[in-house]
Design a protein around this nucleic acid. Sequence first.
DNA 1: AATCGTTTAGGAGCGTAATCCGCAATTTAT
DNA 2: ATAAATTGCGGATTACGCTCCTAAACGATT
Lengths: 206, 206
Amino acid sequence: MLATVGRRARNKADKQQRIFEAASELFTRLGYSAVTTQMIADQADVGTGTLFRYASSKAELLMMVMNEKMRLDTREGIAASASPTSPTEAIMALLAPQIHLPPAFSENTAVYQREILFGAEQGQYRTEALARISELENAIGDILRRFTGTLWVRPGVDLNGAARTTFSTLHMELIRVSIGREDPQTLTATLRAHVDVLLYGVFAQR
Amino acid sequence: MLATVGRRARNKADKQQRIFEAASELFTRLGYSAVTTQMIADQADVGTGTLFRYASSKAELLMMVMNEKMRLDTREGIAASASPTSPTEAIMALLAPQIHLPPAFSENTAVYQREILFGAEQGQYRTEALARISELENAIGDILRRFTGTLWVRPGVDLNGAARTTFSTLHMELIRVSIGREDPQTLTATLRAHVDVLLYGVFAQR
DNA sequence: AATCGTTTAGGAGCGTAATCCGCAATTTAT
DNA sequence: ATAAATTGCGGATTACGCTCCTAAACGATT
């Protein structure tokens, strides 16, 4: 047997590829709710039954597509967060790529966020998305640690916990934008204000 | 005609009441996903078509039911937040009633949170839920203002913005519990830590 | 090559949320 | 009291996500 991957594996990879492309194209062009799973199956040239062996739900199909973008954005953000000389700017640089104000179909972004939080426990693509989220959270922890030399950490503060506090707030802010309850224009300024409060507090120390 | 409200209005109120009770009982007993709209219609003794004139979706039916509890919890929390002598404890007292660790059907809570964030824009019961949320956010603002006499507000901090930062974090934490990604047992301690960081910051002032 | 066991494909079918539209109950006008 | 108009009702119907089960494709074994 010469081929290390059999016909079976190749067919499978082929279908996976076709499904990804069909889902990507349709979701991007029409938006989540206007796309039916039939359309995706048809365009990928597979049966509906087949579709659901490659992703366990319509929402997972979207996550499959969105994860790709987020993977790049996360990488980019983490790289960019290395250079700034203040924690605020480092955190802003980390999240900047996530703030690609999507003009038209922010419905996809909203559904993505929704499914990350509330989607089925065992979804494979959701798991991947959650891993990206953790990556960002950890990156914030790294940033905070990086500045413990130049800034005094207030006694009793756990930096990992603080990283989570910070990320929670920023995550919620991104969700707010995706569901249209906040103006994307002012997002950067709002985020900066949030970060500022988080790092230095509301009340001054005595 | 003696009755100031016609038969029509009375029938309407009757149906509303029956639907509320049916939805409440079924959701509580079986959990959101195990309840079908047919069951609710049957138990309320109305047609399916009728059901959807009183609530525009199944999710809205749930919100109708959950809002009732939240209305009371919010009232209670705001009242309890008046007495504590530190901002941290006041905020904890405000949110305490929301933390009724629901042992079994936390599915309802998760769906409620999901719909508050991502539900249809024009839902009437969602609007009501959002009003409760705003109430809590404003209450946090009030708490912060209450302590501006005894604690110094760090220059440049907008208290309303800070209130939102605080509420965002705590809201996200409650969601985390509702979707089972955090242990309800440790929630109170975690929340306190969050609030502490938010109020006094990660880094000490020089 | 032939046979057997295993994995993958896919479309018919199902459950359910939500709509649509004809009909009935009520109110208003004559 | 009768007719006309308006509002509310509700079940048949639809659309869609997803499952289930049969059949085909594939790889291994002899």
